[in-house]
Design a protein around this nucleic acid. Structure first.
Length: 274
DNA sequence: TCGACGGCGCATCCTG
DNA sequence: CAGGATGCG
DNA sequence: GTCGA
């Protein structure tokens, strides 16, 4: 590779370390002649997301130890239960699958007043529901949330920081990426399943559902209606636990820590290749 | 053998 | 201005 | 590159 295009590749990779900068934006900045993150920081037209990403570019690359994840989650649970005990929340992703380290904190949130019907009504009228905003406000009040990346009716993306000094470093705790995702009450378990993953398991369960004439996603398990010309989602199967979904698909229940399939499946194929 | 390989919420830009 | 398209995670 | 249609 020529020196020039090597430099360009290096810069593209450098800029994409910033949250909010993908391949398109990175290329744009290279074309502008930027050579460093400092050049980037002098651009007056960065999006808000990119500003936050740049501010914490080093901190966001640091992994989060499991005990800190537990402490962060405990703060969110305690704070929200204080303002309304009917909030229900769980951290998903690799943390729920038992990982010792995580990249960010992904929390799904339900409340009995936020149903599928409610969500549709809100969407149709381009209205707002206060449930997520109230939760965010409560967490901001304690200084737990330090910056936002995006914030809407059902999804908040932002930055949080555990209070006090980290005994590991004798420094303040690092800033961590946090997502709060509101999902309709009756979709809690399929949402929990989908957002816990991993991706490989999601693919397997969705394709298995398809084979059995269902369609599975984070919004529920539905029967598929098959006519001569088209297939449409049919009535919803009631789901009251993650176990219910496995059962409907004729699969043995897998504990969250047993859902780390990424790579495992590949190994299986490699065995056949021998 | 050949096409699909995720869909979606939010921010922002584009178009009319 | 609204509605659609695109970038991003 | 993998896998079902």
């Amino acid at each position: 590779m020529s020196p020039a295009s090597q430099e360009e590749t290096n810069l593209l990779n450098l800029f994409q370390r910033v949250s909010g900068i993908g391949v398109v934006a990175a290329k744009k900045f290279v074309d502008k002649g930027y050579k460093s993150l400092e050049d980037l920081s002098n651009d007056p037209n960065l999006t808000h997301h990119q500003c936050v990403g740049l501010k914490y570019v080093d901190e966001f690359e640091k992994e989060i130890p499991r005990d800190e994840m537990e402490n962060l989650l405990a703060i969110v649970k305690k704070t929200l239960n204080e303002i309304d005990s009917r909030y229900n929340m769980e951290a998903c992703g690799s943390f729920r699958r038992g990982a010792n380290i995580s990249g960010d904190l992904d929390i799904i949130l339900t409340h009995p007043d936020f149903t599928e019907v409610e969500e549709k009504v809100v969407k149709r009228h381009k209205a707002t529901t206060p449930l997520l905003a109230q939760a965010v406000q409560a967490l901001e009040k304690y200084g737990f949330l330090t910056d936002f990346v995006s914030t809407g009716n059902v999804k908040y993306m932002g930055v949080c920081q555990f209070p006090g000094t980290d005994p590991r470093s004798n420094q303040p705790y690092l800033h961590r990426r946090i997502d709060l995702r509101f999902i309709p009450h009756e979709n809690y378990y399929t949402g929990l399943l989908a957002w816990t993953g991993d991706d490989e398991l999601n693919r397997i369960m969705r394709s298995r559902a398809k084979e059995l004439g269902y369609t599975l996603n984070e919004y529920g398990l539905r029967r598929r209606i098959k006519t001569e010309t088209e297939e449409t989602p049919g009535e919803k199967i009631p789901i009251n636990s993650e176990e219910d979904v496995f059962k409907k698909l004729g699969m043995p229940y897998m504990e969250p820590h047993e859902r780390n399939l990424r790579g495992v499946v590949k190994k299986k194929y490699l065995m056949y290749e021998e």
